[in-house]
Structure formats: C-alpha cells, structure tokens
C-alpha cells in the first residue's frame, strides 16, 4: 500500500500517504474489486496508466459530506461560550479549515450576524479541494435540504425564520449574498501549507479524522501556532485533542462539543 500511495503521489501529486490507514485500505480494496483486479500492484499500474481510474479513486477517497448547523449543540454552545469571548475583540479573525462546500462557514456567518459580531469578523475558509470552494462561493444549496437545515438552525438556538436567509430559486436555495461579504474562500492544504495569519478561533471539524497520527500532530502544530493566546479551537464531535502532542496547551471549554482554549 505504501508503494501505491508513493507512486500516486509522484505521478499525480495527490498525497494520501498520511491518511488514516485502515479506512484507506478499505477504500483501496473496494476500488480494486470494482476494477476487477486482484492485487494492489495491478491497481497501481492501472492508476498510473489510466487517469480515468485515478479520477474514480479520487472520488472514492474524497469525503466532502457536510451540512448547515451540523451538530446543532456545537453551534448552541458556540453562541453561549465562544461569542461572549469574541465580544471583547475589536476585530475577529476565524479560520474555518476544511470548509468543504461552505455550509459550515455560512452557518458561522449567520450565527455571528445574529449576535451582532459579523461586521467586525473575517472568516478565512479553506479547503484542499478547489471544486468544493467554487461551490462554496456560490452559496447555493439544495432546496430539499432546507427542512433539515431549518431544524438544525432552530435546535442550535437560532431565533429567526431560517427562510429569511435564502431565496428559493430554480437551481436551489440561494443564500443572502451579503453573508459572503466577510468570507474569504481560499485553497490551503493542511498537510503542506503554512499558517497565514493569527486567529481568535480555528474551526476544523471532521477533517483530521481522515489523517493518521503524525499528520494530525502536524496540523495541531499549525493550529497552535495560528491561534492567539486564549484563542479557541473547535474540533468535530468525535475528535480529541487529548491524544495529540498539544493536549497540555489547551483548557477544555466544552468537552462534549470539543471546544478548547489555548492556555499556554
């Protein structure tokens, strides 16, 4: 498997060498049988000679699932525990790393607008995948998701009518363009790129779960370096800082919703 990942990296520049092995192994095995092949070296050969096969593998390996106000309790606690901290800053910078198609980013923007903080906030929303960023900039989400998102929004402590934020159009729910005014969507690879600013908040949920331990540690170095003192780090519901090299550098703001505060 190492050989295959190395070859893919050399040939195409796609770097999966530090992705979590067991699930990588599963997905490679699945691709192997879908291609009607017997061995990983057979798959490697086809990958290198047929870019279409590489395309198929990329689809297998990229997980972009996301939702607006995903895990409503996270956004509820963000309102009650993080917003009061942010009120003390004249200017707020948030890094939303691994933002996928932008649902999480716009959810943050809506929350901050309702709390009266959005005008002095800038959200840097980054992802490795340019295709999801193109979608994110459009702020256009499937209409059939609006029922679920409305429920999430209300469960997260939202007090308006969620439909105030979008217009139903033929192509989907077009969100209020002004929500995007203070968002910068940009490409950034957590595995190789450097820190680019200092932030009060870093939100990186359900991204590092796909990385192996050493890459997780690298990304935690990056976040630690990018957070100002007393800055807040938000992870996905089943992700933990406890097993990383930075465990001692943060206080726990909320254990269930994975909010941590850089303390030292």
């Amino acid at each position: 498997m190492d050989l295959l990942l190395e070859a893919v990296y050399r040939h195409y520049g796609f770097d999966f060498r530090q992705y979590a092995r067991p699930s990588l192994r599963r997905r490679l095995t699945r691709r192997l049988s879908l291609e009607g092949l017997q061995t990983l070296s057979g798959l490697q050969e086809r990958l290198l000679h047929e870019p279409e096969c590489m395309e198929r593998l990329l689809l297998d390996l990229s997980i972009n699932v996301t939702a607006m106000f995903r895990d409503p309790s996270f956004f509820r606690v963000f309102r009650t525990k993080v917003v009061p901290l942010l009120r003390t800053y004249p200017f707020i910078r948030i890094w939303n790393a691994g933002c996928s198609t932008g649902e999480e980013t716009y959810s943050l923007a809506i929350l901050l607008r309702e709390e009266g903080l959005y005008d002095r906030t800038r959200i840097y929303a980054t992802d490795i995948n340019e295709a999801v960023l193109v979608q994110a900039r459009q702020a256009l989400f499937p209409l059939e998701k609006m029922k679920e998102y409305t429920e999430n929004y209300l469960a997260s402590g939202g007090s308006r009518a969620f439909s105030e934020y979008y217009v139903a159009a033929y192509e989907g729910a077009q969100f209020d363009r002004s929500l995007g005014d203070n968002i910068v969507f940009a490409r950034h690879n957590l595995a190789t790129d450097r820190s680019f600013n200092e932030f009060q908040v870093v939100v990186c949920r359900n991204v590092m779960i796909y990385f192996d331990m050493s890459l997780q540690n690298r990304v935690h170095d990056l976040f630690y370096e990018s957070l100002q003192r007393l800055g807040v780090l938000a992870l996905g519901p089943k992700e933990s800082i406890a097993f990383t090299s930075h465990a001692d550098h943060y206080d726990v703001l909320d254990p269930q919703n994975k909010l941590f505060r850089k303390a030292r």
Partner: peptide, 16 residues
C-alpha cells in the same frame, strides 16, 4: 453514525 476501525493500537473513526 461512525464506523469504528482498529489502527495499530488505536481506535479510528470514519464517516465513510
């Protein structure tokens, strides 16, 4: 809502 996998001597989760 998550797959649970064994990764060396650690647990790993996946939303595959």
């Amino acid at each position: 809502g998550y797959h649970l996998l064994i990764d060396g001597h650690r647990l790993a989760l996946s939303t595959e």
